[in-house]
Each structure stands twice: as structure tokens, then as C-alpha cells.
Amino acid sequence: MANVALIGSTGMVGSHILTSLLSNSGVNRVDTISRRAPHAATAGPQTKLTTFVSDDTSKWGSQLAALTPAPEIFMSAFATTRGNAGGFENQHKIEHGLNVELARAARDAGSKVYVLISAQGASKDSRIPYSRMKGEIEEDVKALGFERTVILRPGLISGTREESRPLEAGIRFIASWAGKVHSSLKDGWAQDADVIGKAAVNAGLKALKGDVPEGSEKVWVVEGKSIIELANES
């Protein structure tokens, strides 16, 4: 059974990753590090969940390094928005900086598998700042040399966010409608947050066992419909 550490547990996808981890019989212990307590921790007692809550993100790395036992799998669904960060420069500094810093701390602590929630179109060479930032995070994490790195690149993430994003909500409504007509109209460009969460957990556990596709022994990238297929695996 695996010990897992997770950052981003209070976000749209991260909260579903946490739920999937807690319900998975292959997971022994889950440690979360976040600015506020994840919903799962406040909803009721959780025997295998330990949380560390602090607004001071400079403490997160040392907390991760001090976990005992060390997590075999480290997962990140951590992200912020340009608006919340106060501009793209700060968004890049926070999202890129913290993701890479904590990935390094996890590697140094002995984590074997790293699972990152990235985004469709991520590329360090992209002309789109957001996609370029996501690509830079991917490249810098891969360079850390985990035994296996898993990168999920969902398209539009459908589901309900706590924060209001009217334009995105409209697109999510279209995705939901398309999915009800036929899954083929949606699956390639939009995936539900709970599905992404299940896929991330399944991928992490499979990677820990070495059960990865041929040619993906070091870095396994999962996109589009493959995310949905992975979520449906037992």
C-alpha cells in the first residue's frame, strides 16, 4: 500500500484526487499541505488523512521533507489564477516556483513517483503565456529525475468551482450538454474533475508498480480521452 502526499487538495481537481485517494484500498496514508483545510478533513474523521495547513508557503517544503514515512507518490494539482495572483508575473512566480520547489523536496525525501495535473497545450515553446508556464513546469519537474513522472493534460475541466468564473462556467455548460448528447462530442476536449481525479490516482499507483505504457517508463503523458479511459480502470 502506498503513502501519498498531495498539494492542491482544495482545488477543483485536487479535491477529487483527495477523495479518490481516501477511498482507494491501495493507499495507506495521505498527507496534504495547503493554505486551508481540505473539505474531506472537515467533513468527518479520516483515519488515513493527515493535513498541514499554513498560509506561509515557505514552510511547505520543510513540512514535506519531514513526513514520516516518506511518501512514495507525490501529487500536485496546485495552481492559481492570474487574477488571484495579481497578474501573470506573480502567477508564474507562485505556480511555477512552488510546484518545482515542492517536487524537488519530495524527490529529496525519497518519493519515487510524481504526478502533475498540467493542461492541454502545455509547451515551453508556446506563444500563449499560460501554456508556456505549464510547459516550463513540466520540463523543470522532468529534469528532477523521479523514477517515474506522470503528467495529466486535461482539456476544459468540467464540474463546479467554488469561485465564480462566468465565461468558463458557460463553456462548462456547453461541455455538459455535449456529453449528454454523446460522450464523443465532449471527451476529447473536456473532462470532468472527478474523472481527472480518479485518473490521477490510478496513474500514480500504476506508475509505482511499473505498470506504464511501453515507451513511457520515465515520463508518462496522459491526455484527452486517455484520461477517461484511465479513470475507468480498476
Rank of each mutant, 00 (worst) to 15 (best):
G26D: 12
L22M: 05
S9C: 14
G8F: 09
E233Y: 05
G155I: 03
A43I: 05
R165C: 02
S131E: 13
S23H: 12
E162W: 09
G204Q: 05
K93P: 01
K209A: 12
F52N: 13
P38M: 09
R127W: 00
A65P: 14
I228T: 09
K124C: 02
L167W: 08
R36L: 01
V222C: 07
S111F: 14
M12H: 11
N90D: 08
T19Q: 13
G83W: 13
F146Q: 03
N99M: 14
M75R: 12
A203V: 02
K142S: 04
K112H: 10
G44T: 06
N84R: 08
T10F: 13
Q63V: 05
A143L: 11
A79T: 04
A70W: 00
A85Q: 07
P38L: 09
D192A: 11
N3V: 13
V115Y: 08
F146K: 06
F52R: 14
V13A: 10
L64K: 02
A200W: 02
E168R: 00
T68R: 12
S34M: 04
V53E: 05
S183W: 08
G155S: 01
A193H: 12
L22K: 12
S20D: 13
F52A: 11
Q63R: 11
E101F: 03
G188C: 04
G204M: 03
E168Y: 10
K206F: 00
D187I: 15
V201L: 10
T57I: 14
F52S: 14
E233F: 07
G86M: 09
E147V: 07
K218Y: 12
L102R: 03
I174F: 09
A103W: 01
T19D: 13
V212C: 13
A40D: 07
L156H: 10
D55R: 07
D56V: 12
P38S: 07
K112R: 15
K206L: 03
E95D: 15
R172N: 09
I137F: 00
T47E: 10
T149I: 10
G188W: 12
L67W: 04
E147L: 09
I227G: 01
L230G: 00
T149R: 03
I228A: 09
E89N: 06
T149D: 02
Y114E: 05
A169Y: 15
V150E: 02
R148Q: 09
K48N: 09
A40F: 09
D211S: 05
K198D: 01
T50E: 11
V30A: 06
T68C: 01
D211M: 00
A193N: 15
E162N: 14
I174G: 04
W220A: 01
G61M: 02
F88K: 03
G44K: 08
S76G: 06
G83I: 13
R82M: 11
E147C: 07
E136S: 12
D211P: 02
E89L: 03
A190N: 07
A66L: 07
V212P: 15
T42S: 02
E136V: 15
R104Y: 04
T51R: 08
G179C: 07
E229M: 02
